[in-house]
Computed example of a mutant assay.
Amino acid sequence: MRLRSFRFLWIGQACANTGDVLYIVALIAILYQSTESALYLSLLPFTITLARFISGMGAPLMLSHFALKGMLVWSQGLKTIVLGILGASFLLYVPELEVVFMLAFIIAFLDGWAAPARNAMLPMIVKESELTQANSFVAVVDQSIQFGGWAVGGIIVAFTSGSFVIWLTFGLYCISTFIMAMIENAIKDQKRKRKIPLLSGWQTIWKHPILRTVHIMIFLESIANVVWIAAILYIFVSDVLQKSEAWWGYLNASFFFGLIAGGLIVSKYTRLFEKHMKLILLTTSFVVSGVTMLFGSIQIALLALALTLVSGIVEQVKSIAIVTFIQKSCPKDALPEVFSAQSALISITFGCGTLLVGFLAEVVSIPFVFAFSGILLLSSALYMWKYHRHFQL
């Protein structure tokens, strides 16, 4: 790998992602202390999801004016400024809730450019033979932050305050901006002067057989994967397993450990993974469907724990395969628009899926929700099996 630029990219993004988790933990604590309202707490993830969707839809317009590195650095720098304003507002006075949600919306909007830009930049600073290993390493770092960030953030908030954690995040954002500014792009950080239509990413996806197949799978799986969010698992533990809240934590931890383990497995067996990537993607698609349907039908806590671990492993391996297929099959100059469209698709689909699954859990049952999810995942796997001939690199 071009170690210098790759190191700056993943460290800078790790600092930014850690800050993203910490400041959301801080806002949850602040909002609950000031309102004691579950409605306001639920509005926070909705606001963040909506902002990232709008950001992803508008990203091609930004890509016509900025290089990928420029998008990363400028978006992170602006996030830092907005977060500083949020932190200062809590020091000077107690801001109105509308102000808090508006600033959270702006931060999430700017953050919506980061992941597509990073995924598009990786093939430019990493050799193609090392791309799978780079993707698995970045996936492990991301999931480690997600796993540890919420726990660490909760502990820090408990011993300090939400305002302190926001300023801690401000420091991480500053470090992230500085580090990513030192990235040296292999393609001399191309300034993208060409005009990019707003729907260019969607058009590329629809015209390209692999990209079209993969993103139809992503659409179905974004709805299905809603069952693994914390709220649904909480109800599953209470109503189906009839266990204490501690088991909710065990299941979440098991799933995230599985995600990390999946990334480590791919990293260790990179050559085998690349040689059989299509078969692995097809197999994991069917396995995750079966695991999800089985999970919703059991009442044995230890078996549920094992299945969440397996689900995490398989889901991570499948996700790395999907990202690698996109990076290797899509023209490099179209990658930013494609990943921007993908980010918008996942945001809006996951957001709507959350409402749908929440409604089904309320009016039917939790086992039905997992069965429904398993059927969607099975549909995704069958769709790939039908069009597997497209997956030739």
Rank of each mutant, 00 (worst) to 15 (best):
M1I: 10
M1V: 15
S5E: 07
F6N: 11
W10C: 09
I11G: 02
A14N: 12
A16W: 05
G19Y: 00
V25W: 05
A29W: 12
Y32E: 08
Y32T: 11
Q33C: 03
T35L: 06
F46T: 14
T47L: 11
T47Y: 09
I48P: 01
I54T: 15
A59K: 01
P60G: 06
L68I: 07
L72Q: 08
V73D: 05
S75Q: 00
G77M: 06
L83R: 04
L86D: 00
L86E: 02
G87R: 08
S89E: 10
L92W: 12
P95F: 01
L97D: 02
M102K: 11
F105D: 01
I107Y: 06
F109Y: 13
F109S: 04
L110W: 04
G112E: 03
G112V: 02
A117K: 12
R118E: 10
A120P: 15
A120Y: 09
I125G: 02
E128T: 09
A134H: 00
A134D: 01
F137D: 04
A139E: 08
Q143T: 00
S144Y: 09
I145H: 03
F147M: 15
G148K: 13
W150Q: 08
W150N: 09
W150A: 07
A151N: 12
V152T: 09
G153A: 06
I155D: 06
V157K: 01
S161I: 05
S163H: 07
F164L: 09
I166M: 05
Y173K: 04
I175H: 00
T177E: 05
A186K: 12
K188N: 09
Q190F: 04
Q190H: 13
R194S: 11
L199C: 03
G201V: 01
G201Y: 04
Q203A: 10
Q203W: 06
L211P: 00
V214R: 04
I216K: 12
M217Q: 10
M217G: 15
I223A: 02
A224L: 02
A224Y: 03
V227N: 10
I229R: 14
L233G: 07
Y234N: 15
F236K: 04
S238K: 15
A246V: 07
A246R: 15
G249Y: 00
N252K: 14
F255S: 06
G258W: 02
L259E: 05
I260K: 10
G262Q: 03
G263Y: 01
L272D: 05
M277K: 00
M277W: 00
K278M: 11
K278R: 15
V287T: 04
V288W: 13
S289D: 01
G296D: 06
Q299C: 11
L302P: 03
A304F: 00
L305A: 09
T308Q: 13
L309S: 06
V310M: 14
I313W: 13
E315Y: 13
S319A: 11
A321C: 04
I326P: 05
S329C: 10
S340K: 07
A341M: 14
S343N: 13
A344K: 15
I346P: 00
I348H: 02
T354P: 07
T354V: 04
L356C: 10
L356H: 03
F359Q: 07
L360C: 15
L360Q: 11
S365L: 10
P367M: 04
V369H: 05
F370E: 08
A371E: 09
G374I: 07
L376R: 00
L378N: 06
A381E: 04
L382C: 14
R389C: 11
F391A: 08
Q392T: 14
